[in-house]
Design a protein around this nucleic acid. Sequence first.
DNA 1: CTTGTCTATGCAACTAGTTGCATAGCAGGA
DNA 2: TCCTGCTATGCAACTAGTTGCATAGACAAG
Lengths: 186, 186
Amino acid sequence: MALEHAILVSLLEKPGSGYELARRFERSIGYFWTATHQQIYRVLKRMEADGWVDVRGVPQRTRPDKKEYSVAAAGREALSRWLHDPIEPESVRHDLAVKIRGAAFDDPAALVREVERHQRMHRDRLAHYLAGEERDFGTAPDAPTPPDPGRELQHAVLRGGIAYERMMIDWLDDVLATLHRLGPGR
Amino acid sequence: MALEHAILVSLLEKPGSGYELARRFERSIGYFWTATHQQIYRVLKRMEADGWVDVRGVPQRTRPDKKEYSVAAAGREALSRWLHDPIEPESVRHDLAVKIRGAAFDDPAALVREVERHQRMHRDRLAHYLAGEERDFGTAPDAPTPPDPGRELQHAVLRGGIAYERMMIDWLDDVLATLHRLGPGR
DNA sequence: CTTGTCTATGCAACTAGTTGCATAGCAGGA
DNA sequence: TCCTGCTATGCAACTAGTTGCATAGACAAG
């Protein structure tokens, strides 16, 4: 399990509340890990009980009070242990591939719209990534930024996301061409 | 949920037992969907109760008897319904990306071996895919095979797997270069 | 003749993740 | 004023998926 570890990394990058974490999981972290707010709250509880994180109540005037979490020593150690563990089978769940193979037993042409819809989502995400890259890592201004490992590694992960979206867009072009070649079937 | 649907597609391609399905999920189907034998047996039970599949006891001499499953009319309809449903948020779980961002808070250089190990696994899988492609879809012999939608679509999905592995290998080269540039940290 | 591997199925207990709902204060618009 | 939407946290009930174990016959290696 790595949700704990994804939370640790996110809190090390910047401490925050469960709600804030949930929003990060909808954006930057969500590109390679998803989690709902319920799951995050529950796991944070467990991490707090295990002493992996510290909590600090933050009263707010205009908003409900929040609990700001930050990584404790035990959490850092747990993360370090996990980083040094050679694990991961990388389980895959790719609905669209199942659908494409399934289309042979239905009407292949009926899948065209669905594939196009997915391709559009990947194009949108690519545009979003590229905008984020330009914003956060764009061509250096006059002041050259000092080398920052965190920044460099975040950029490397983002480049992975960009490469993934480009690959998907190209592959879905290939799939669409195949579907068109097959024509209306069954 | 799509394990049911992945099983339906697999059984439409070729009827088989729970054990056989489990082995297919370790190979061809496993490239885009994973499942353990326990899960498959349990889901098959449910699908049988729902009338999605038919069972036929097959006595065997040298092996334990098996139950051969095949898709029933209701199963075909369920698959068709799912194929026409525009769904999927494509949930992602990418441990390695979490590790890479986490490396900023540990020793980036210590991750080099792990990344190399992953890259090796992707190279192996790519070689495996390419061998399978040559075997099943290789340069046509004298007899041109008749057009078969199932075959074409299986090939399209396999090309997706190949594109994915190539993308990952290239990206991990990029990650390794970044890690080396950072040098031993913290 | 014992040990290990392969086919074949399954139970029980657990952990992970999803869905629906509840609460509650504040802000802004109709 | 009421309704919607945002921040903020959480419970309860469910579904999905994992891990460990059990059984049992056939076959091959040592």
